[in-house]
Design a protein around this nucleic acid. Structure first.
Length: 392
DNA sequence: CCTCCACAGGAAGCGCAGGAGT
DNA sequence: ACTCCTGCGCTTCCTGTGGAGG
C-alpha cells in the first residue's frame, strides 16, 4: 500500500538496525578495537578482548564496523561474527566458525574431536581466526568453549584464534571458571552509556535524515533524549521513542512531532523493544512468558506475601501450573518442570523477567518471579502467536 | 524435635538426527 | 544395510534445603 507520508522522509534511518556511516562518539572505541585486531592481519595473534556495556551503547555496531574495515584487507586474518543467542553451545559455535572453510560441516553429526582437528588444520596454514562472540553470556558451556579454543591455540605454532566477547551483563563474569575468565579478559573495554547531550546529537542527526524538514520540534528531540538518558542511556531506546512519536504524528494527522507525541510514545516503546526479543523466542519459552503475564494480571495466590520489602511477585509453582494450563489450551503438551526451570532462567538472561531466590524467609526454597514489562502489553504481544490460548 | 511440603538443581539416560566405518 | 558414534532437547530420578506445623 502506497501511503503518502507527510512526516517521514526515510523510515529506515530511524530504525535501530540502521547503521550510519559514522558512529558518533564512538571513534575512540572503534580505533581501540581496530588497534587490538590489526596484528591478526599480519599473522600475529592479538590478545583476547572483552567488550562490556549496557544495551544500546554501540558495542555491536562498533565491533561490526571494525570487522568491515579489516575485512576489506584481511591479510592472514579471518573474521567470524557469531550471535550467541542462536549459536549457544560449544559445538554449534565451532561448527559455525569452521563452516566457511569446510563446507561439509554444514551438516551435523560430526564429533567435536573432528571439528577440533579441522580447526588445528586451518590454523596450521597460518590463519589468524578472530571470532566475535556477541552476547557471550548466552553460551551454555562457555568454560568448555574457551578451554578448547585456547588449547587449540597452544597446539599450533603459526596461526591462532582470538576471541572478542561482547556482553551487557557484568555479573556473569563471576560465574566463569577462573582460567577461562583470565583468558577471556586479557583486554577489557567498557562502553559508557550515552549522555543526554550525546543522545540529542544522535537523534538530531537521524531526524534530519529521516524526517521531513520542519516536521519536528527541537524540543521533541531534547525531550526524547532526556527520557532515554534517564532510563539507561540507550540509543536504541531513544531512536525507537522518536520513531514511535513520529508514527503517532503521522497517523494522527499532525503537522509535526512535538513533546506531546514523544510523551504519548513513551508507554509503547518498551513493549515494542521487548517484542523484538519475544518474536524470536521458541514456543515453550513463549508459553511460559504468556503464563507469567496472565498470572501477573489476574493476580497471584501469594500476592499478599512480602519478601525484602517487595511484593507482587509470582511463585515458581503456580506459574508452572498456569503454564501447563496454557499449553493444554493451545493443544500442546507442557514440558517437564525441570525444563520449565531452564526456560525461566533463559527468560531471565534475556531480561524479560527477574528471578529472586527466596532463600530464607519464605516457603523454603522457591523462585520469585516478576515480569520485567507491562503485563497487558506482553499479553497483547503473545496472544496472537499462541493461537488464542485464552481462558483460564 | 521430627516430618512433610515445595521447590532447586545435578546426574543419568533416552530418542532422534545425522554422520562414519564396515 | 548394519552398527556405533555425537550433540541436543528432554524426561526421570534423586539429593539437598529451609519453612510450617505438629
Amino acid at each position: 500500500m502506497e501511503l503518502k507520508e507527510r512526516i517521514f522522509k526515510d523510515r529506515n534511518v530511524l530504525s535501530p538496525h540502521y547503521v550510519p556511516d559514522e558512529l558518533p562518539f564512538r571513534q575512540k572505541e572503534i580505533e581501540e578495537i581496530m588497534r587490538s585486531v590489526l596484528p591478526a592481519t599480519a599473522g600475529q595473534k592479538p590478545k583476547n578482548l572483552f567488550v562490556y556495556g549496557k544495551p544500546g551503547t554501540g558495542k555491536t555496531c562498533s565491533v561490526k564496523r571494525v570487522m568491515e574495515k579489516v575485512g576489506k584487507n584481511p591479510g592472514k586474518a579471518s573474521l567470524a561474527y557469531i550471535n550467541c543467542r542462536i549459536y549457544n553451545s560449544r559445538y554449534r559455535i565451532m561448527q559455525k566458525i569452521l563452516k566457511q572453510f569446510v563446507p561439509e560441516l554444514e551438516k551435523s553429526g560430526f564429533g567435536l574431536p573432528y571439528l577440533y582437528e579441522k580447526m588445528i588444520e586451518i590454523m596450521g596454514r597460518g590463519t589468524q581466526l578472530v571470532v566475535v562472540l556477541d552476547e557471550v553470556d548466552m553460551i551454555k558451556d562457555l568454560d568448555e568453549l574457551v578451554y578448547t579454543l585456547t588449547r587449540s591455540n597452544d597446539e599450533t605454532k603459526i596461526g591462532g584464534i582470538t576471541l572478542i566477547g561482547i556482553s551487557n551483563k557484568l555479573s556473569f563474569k563471576n560465574d566463569l571458571d577462573p582460567r577461562s575468565k583470565s583468558s577471556l579478559y586479557e583486554n577489557e573495554m567498557v562502553f559508557a552509556p550515552y549522555t543526554a547531550v550525546q543522545l540529542q546529537q544522535i537523534l538530531r542527526q537521524r531526524a534530519g535524515l529521516g524526517i521531513r524538514a520542519g516536521c519536528f520540534d527541537e524540543s521533541a528531540v531534547n525531550l526524547a533524549s532526556a527520557i532515554a538518558a534517564q532510563e539507561t542511556g540507550d540509543a536504541r531506546y531513544a531512536l525507537k521513542l522518536f520513531e514511535k512519536a513520529a508514527e503517532i504524528a503521522e497517523y494522527g494527522g499532525k503537522e509535526k512531532i512535538t513533546d506531546m507525541e514523544v510523551e504519548g510514545a513513551r508507554k509503547r516503546v518498551e513493549i515494542d523493544l521487548a517484542g523484538e526479543t519475544v518474536n524470536t523466542l521458541p514456543e515453550n519459552h513463549q508459553l511460559v512468558l504468556y503464563a507469567i503475564a496472565k498470572l501477573t494480571l489476574s493476580g497471584s495466590r501469594y500476592s499478599k506475601l512480602e519478601f525484602e520489602n517487595e511484593s507482587g511477585f509470582l511463585i515458581s509453582g503456580e506459574v508452572y501450573e498456569e503454564y501447563e494450563r496454557v499449553a493444554r489450551g493451545a493443544g500442546k503438551r507442557a514440558r517437564s518442570s525441570r525444563w520449565y526451570k531452564e526456560y525461566l532462567s533463559d527468560l531471565e538472561t534475556l531480561g524479560l523477567v527477574t528471578l529472586t531466590l527466596s532463600g530464607k524467609g519464605l516457603r523454603g526454597h522457591t523462585t520469585l518471579i516478576k515480569l520485567g514489562y507491562d503485563a497487558k502489553g506482553m499479553l497483547g504481544l503473545l496472544a496472537p502467536k499462541l493461537g488464542g490460548a485464552s481462558n483460564g
